[in-house]
């Protein structure tokens, strides 16, 4: 069993921005991610619900696990990305069980 200390980066952002966000993430060094599309919630921009054909009001949740070094590279770019569109980013230290 190999447990590695890693950084978990979680992002909630507008679904229409996901494609470009993933492009940015991969260019910044993330090797993979998990995406939950069409989620609902309420934040600074009011209620966002996925139950609207206009994809513009749907949010997505995405997380990636990476090394501290890669996280240092990714986070400034996420900050830049989220400057323009609504979204939130959280980071935490996690134990990653590598199989």
């Amino acid at each position: 069993m190999n447990i590695v200390k890693s950084v978990k980066i979680e992002v909630i952002l507008e679904s229409i921005q996901v494609e470009r966000f993933i492009e940015m993430l991969e260019e910044a060094g993330a090797h993979g991610y998990t995406l939950f599309g069409n989620i609902s919630g309420k934040g600074q921009n009011g209620m966002l619900d996925h139950n609207c054909r206009a994809k513009i009001f749907a949010n997505s949740y995405l997380f990636t696990i990476c090394s501290e070094e890669v996280a240092q590279n990714i986070l400034p770019q996420i900050a830049l990305f989220l400057e323009d569109c609504s979204g939130s980013c959280f980071t935490s230290e996690v134990n990653h069980l590598k199989l």
Partner: peptide
């Protein structure tokens, strides 16, 4: 337009607020 254009404008002009267009 309430589907294609609001989405395209939100992507092109992120400072625009979709709470108006749709």
């Amino acid at each position: 337009s309430y589907i294609a254009v609001p989405a395209a404008m939100r992507l092109a002009i992120p400072k625009s607020n979709p709470a108006f267009t749709v």
